[in-house]
Design a protein around this nucleic acid. Structure first.
Lengths: 140, 140
DNA sequence: CGGCATGTGAGAACTGTTGTCGACTGTGCG
DNA sequence: CGCACAGTCGACAACAGTTCTCACATGCCG
């Protein structure tokens, strides 16, 4: 049986008022800062329970930390500023179709995909930037 | 200056004879098992050096472990079978253009993206058909 | 209300990764 | 060839994120 506890409700609430991603530790810190008393273990447990329920989506950062977002409703992707962390949701039928087609051509079925776009947003890009023409060489 | 050392060559060799992904620890274990004496730190260093050189590609597993793969240096994406772990490289100008355009529309610059497609490959999807080309043993 | 399965939380333990530092060794030079 | 030395090695410590442990608390059901 699964109980409704103060802590579980509170974790849920954090993600409701949150935009973008948060790691378990951030959730914990935020709750502590907000006056809630909660253990780190409990945050992990609550977050994982929410993931199991499909209410949260989890991905990994490059550093290996798990971060969570509330957005399981409709399919979309994220555009993340690598400086300030601001996240925008974007949709793209184009890329959905492309992925399905490519996978199909290789005989794959039951296809899912993950796509994250990283960049520097206009605000973060404004300050001192050495190269006016900053064409990254490796990506196209 | 960058030296050619026995260890670095050996790590490189492991990925040459390897298909698919391997974690740093797997590389270390494999080398030890093969009689090579090498430190774990050295494996991490060598692997990261190879990633920096663009000779290896690194991603994270769901468990947070970093795994590495030798793949072509040009930009591409991976189509991964969630059953056997077989990986195919795919390219898609379409999706590159889409990502750049979408990011640009939001004022983002210096844009990169990651895209992984997961599915079940034809061989693994066939109900009672034991595929002649079976999964490599230690794929994730 | 009372019983008890379930949840909590502080801290220990664990895992993967990175840092440290003395010893070692390719590499370039004479 | 041999020497100097910067780059490298490797055992181990340190670290961060996550999971586990276990005594105690608490929501749920009758």
């Amino acid at each position: 049986m699964i109980r409704n506890t103060r802590q579980r409700t509170a974790v849920n609430a954090v993600f409701e008022e949150l935009e973008g991603f948060a790691s378990a530790q951030e959730v914990h810190a935020r709750m502590r800062a907000g006056g809630d008393s909660i253990g780190l273990s409990t945050v992990y447990r609550a977050v994982q329970a929410l993931v199991d329920d499909g209410e949260l989506d989890s991905i990994r950062t490059d550093s290996g930390e798990a971060i969570y977002r509330r957005c399981s409703t409709r399919h979309h992707h994220h555009l993340v500023c690598r400086v300030c962390g601001r996240t925008e949701e974007v949709e793209g039928p184009t890329v959905e179709r492309w992925a399905d087609r490519v996978a199909g051509e290789h005989g794959f079925v039951d296809v899912k995909h993950t796509l994250e776009i990283f960049g520097t947003c206009a605000a973060c890009h404004a300050p001192a930037e050495p190269s006016p023409v900053d064409a990254p060489a490796d990506q196209r």
